[in-house]
Structures are given as structure tokens and as C-alpha cells.
Design a protein around this nucleic acid. Structure first.
Lengths: 243, 243
DNA sequence: CTAATAGTGTCTCTAAGACAGTATTCC
DNA sequence: GGAATACTGTCTTAGAGACACTATTAG
């Protein structure tokens, strides 16, 4: 089949076999106190009965970051993710049985996923607890190498919590230090000492900014917690180490 | 012009405009006590008078990592780099004026560059001090966005020195702790205390392995230094922090 | 001998972790 | 009042950095 591929000066067409480039996204959020990932179900073959990370082909005249932002909005209705960064590119031949596909994978972190069904596609989208998505069996079996991509993204997120302020991307503004601590506990899967956590966060200049206001205590009571805004820094120094 | 691009089932050809995928490499090494990068000169337009990072199109039926290994060997004759990892993918439209090119960038670290002219290409290759390569003017003006790629790679390398054992990739096996310290000093551009450095390295289990042997002192004299092999670990815990 | 490099000892300071104690709310 | 959550204080320990000191070589 003929296409409109133009062969530029100085390039031998046989040097670059047909390659499709996609941007796929691992959208992480915390719901019900558990780390969750956004998955979509694609009806058509060869996706039959399997789920996938949201994503799609890059358009002409858009950067990779723009493509990621576009896909994110198409899928979640979210205009801006507090965190959206490329983390790895996957290009094994045969990872997509139809043709050579090179996928630039992005990690997105959002505080809440609005209306999932607001996506422009008619595809079914769901927020899935990470443990179930990584299981590899049952309802949420992942297509292609998407299970590897998801695992890599979560490893990346766990590491970024130590050295960057990515945790603030999981919570709404303003937030309490308990909410911020719950982010670390959900992603790392381990409990942290509230007192020591507070001291570490507050002793890292620029991580969070006090508002002076306080939130109402929850239904269980307790002292009204102080509210904070995200800070301006992106790199934590000193880092917040895992035990 | 017609090509042999086949349109697979289920894909709309207009969804994936013609994209070429290349693997480009930032090959770092230390020579004359200074961090150096391998650059190649490409004669043909639009490279006229500018230098570039070594790299090329991916082949069918090879993984991205395999493409990187192949390019490295073509360019340096080195079969195996002690460190070779993908670090970022660049795909802005217009970054290559000829067509849409998505470049997966790799960071390679080698202890010594063998015969540079051993490359299969007839292109001229040179080891260039990083400071001159990053200057952006003079003899080694870089093509396209290669200056940005180089800067990102060096930032990455500086960060990896803190948390991984990448430093051992810069030195031959076996090595002395002074040689290892010179790696940190050259890449970070700052002097380190020899005594404290030794203690930190030896207190990180698995970073280096003592051989029991000693090297001859240099022409300036001094106590014969102990020789070490690279260790088995890849992640430094605790990390080796920069001041 | 001196100069240079390799390696050790020791002191101070900072940050992490354990954990007890205080403050303020809901029920 | 008791239970729960939000803080604060204090003690111990580990690691980083400064820097003095010892060991072994070349010239």
C-alpha cells in the first residue's frame, strides 16, 4: 500500500524501517487510601479481553510532552497534571504484534481523577488498585509489555518520593501533613512515624508552605490539622529516605 | 515517492505520520584527568561544519539496547561498555530539519576509548573535553539539540555517581581508591577529602572488593596503594552525597 | 633528608528513628 | 469522661566533614 512518506535528502529509506511512535501513560492517584492506576479496555483485536495503559500515536507538529498532555486530557478530562514526566522508552521488536512500535512512557500523578468516562474515546476506562493491576491474572490482564511498563513506573514513583516533591502532586491544594504522609504510606506500603515525618517535611525548606489556616477534624475527632500549600522546590534536600 | 510501508490491521495510516527513530549516544570517559565526550563530524549537509553525538537509525529486529550496543561498537570498537543505559527520549518536531526524528538517547561510560578511528564509518571522531563541547561555540559546535542532550546526560551522570556504582565504569579493573576518587572529582568538578572518601567507599558493602594486591606508586612516590575490583552491587546504600 | 601519596584516628555536627508527653477535637 | 488525631520534646545512634596523624614510597 502506498503512503505519503517522503524520503528526505541524505537518507536511505532502507535505513529507517516503518516505525510508529506512541506515548503511553501511567496515571497514578490515591483513592480509598490505596495506590491506583488508570487502565482502559480496548475492544478490538489483538486487545480482546485485555486492558492497556492509556496512550496513542504522536501527532505531527506536537512535542512528546504535548502528546502526553493531550492523551491525559482525552483520557481523564484533566487539563493539567501536577506531575507529568517521561521515564522510559520501550521498543523491543514484536512487543506489538502488528508492527514496530516505539513507546515513550510517561508517569502522570493526579490528586483525583475527575470523570473517567469523559474521555473522547468510547473505550471503557477504570481506576484499578495497583496490586490487582500488577497481578497479571484475573479481570485486569494487561496487553503487550504494559505490565513491565507499569512496574517500572511504580518503581520510579517510589524512588521519586525520596528525592523530589512529587508527593504533593497526589494531594489537593491545600493539604494536611497527614494527607501527605498517607501518600508516602500508600506508595511505599509502610507506616511512617507521624512526628518524625512532620519534622522532616518542615525541615526541608520549600517543600511545603504553611497557610496559617486549619482544617476541620475528621469524624473521629482530633486536633484540627494545619493546612499547607505545595512548595516551590522540586528537589528534596536532604532527601526523605525510606527505611 | 512510494515506499514499502505496510499498513497493519486496525491502524489508520494518518494516525502515524512518518517517523524515524534513532539511538544516539553520549559516550563519557576520563582522559588527562578531565571528563571527555566522544563526538563525530558529519560532512554532509545539514551537518556542515558541526559535530554530533554518535548514533544512527534502529534496525528491524533489534531492541533499543542492542542498537545502542551496535552503535557503540561501530563508533569506538568497544564491544562492551561497563555502563550503557537509556536516559531520555527527544522528539520535538523540527529538531532535525529533514524529517520527524525521535531519538532515544543513551549514556555510555567506558574506562578508555580504544582506537577511535576504528569505526566502520569514514566519519571523523574525536574525544573532546566536556567544557569545550558544552561551550557551543568554536570548533565543536553541536548539531540540532545535541547540546541539550549532552547537558542532560552529564546531569544524569553526576546524579548517578551519588546513588549507583557507575563510578567503577570509568576505571580499569583493578583500580585504586585514588583513581576512583579522581572520577568523582572530574565529574563533579570538586575536590574530595581522600580519607573520608576511602571510609565512605569501604563502608558501603559491595561497592568495591579488595584484591589484596598493591600497585606501584607513581613517579612522585608515595605509599603503594591497594588495588580493588568493582563490586557486585549497582545501588549505593548509603548514598555518596555531594557537598 | 623532603615531598608526595596512602591510609587511620578522632572530634564535631547533623539528621534519623524511637518513643514519651501535651493539645484539641468528636462522641 | 475516653478515644482519636495533631503536634512537641528528648534521647540515642549513624553518618558526614574537618583535620591531625602515621606509613611507605621516589628522588
Amino acid at each position: 500500500m502506498a503512503t505519503n512518506v517522503r524520503i528526505p535528502v541524505g537518507y536511505d529509506p532502507r535505513s529507517f524501517p516503518p516505525v510508529a511512535v506512541t506515548v503511553d501513560m501511567v496515571v497514578l492517584t490515591i483513592a480509598d487510601g490505596v495506590l491506583q492506576v488508570l487502565l482502559v479496555e480496548r475492544g478490538a483485536e489483538p486487545f480482546e479481553g485485555s486492558w492497556a495503559l492509556p496512550g496513542g500515536f504522536i501527532h505531527e507538529d506536537e512535542t512528546l510532552d504535548d502528546a502526553a498532555r493531550r492523551e491525559l486530557e482525552e483520557e481523564t478530562g484533566t487539563q493539567v497534571a501536577p506531575y507529568l514526566q517521561q521515564f522510559h522508552t520501550y521498543g523491543d521488536p514484536g512487543r506489538d504484534p502488528r508492527m514496530r512500535v516505539v513507546t515513550v512512557a510517561y508517569l502522570a500523578v493526579v490528586p483525583t481523577v475527575g470523570d473517567i468516562s469523559a474521555g473522547t474515546d468510547a473505550r471503557l476506562a477504570e481506576l484499578v488498585p495497583l496490586t490487582r493491576a500488577l497481578k497479571g491474572t484475573g479481570r485486569y490482564r494487561l496487553a503487550f509489555d504494559h505490565r513491565v511498563i507499569l512496574r517500572d513506573a511504580v518503581d520510579q514513583a517510589r524512588a521519586l518520593l525520596e528525592t523530589t516533591s512529587i508527593a504533593t502532586a497526589f494531594v489537593d491544594d491545600p493539604f494536611t501533613l497527614s494527607e501527605l504522609r498517607h501518600v508516602y504510606e500508600a506508595v511505599w506500603g509502610q507506616a511512617l512515624d507521624p512526628g518524625n515525618f512532620r519534622r522532616k517535611v518542615l525541615s526541608t525548606p520549600g517543600f511545603v508552605v504553611a497557610t496559617g489556616r486549619h482544617a476541620r477534624p475528621g469524624p473521629e475527632g482530633g486536633k484540627p490539622p494545619e493546612l499547607f500549600h505545595p512548595g516551590t522546590i522540586t528537589r528534596l534536600d536532604p532527601a526523605l529516605h525510606r527505611a
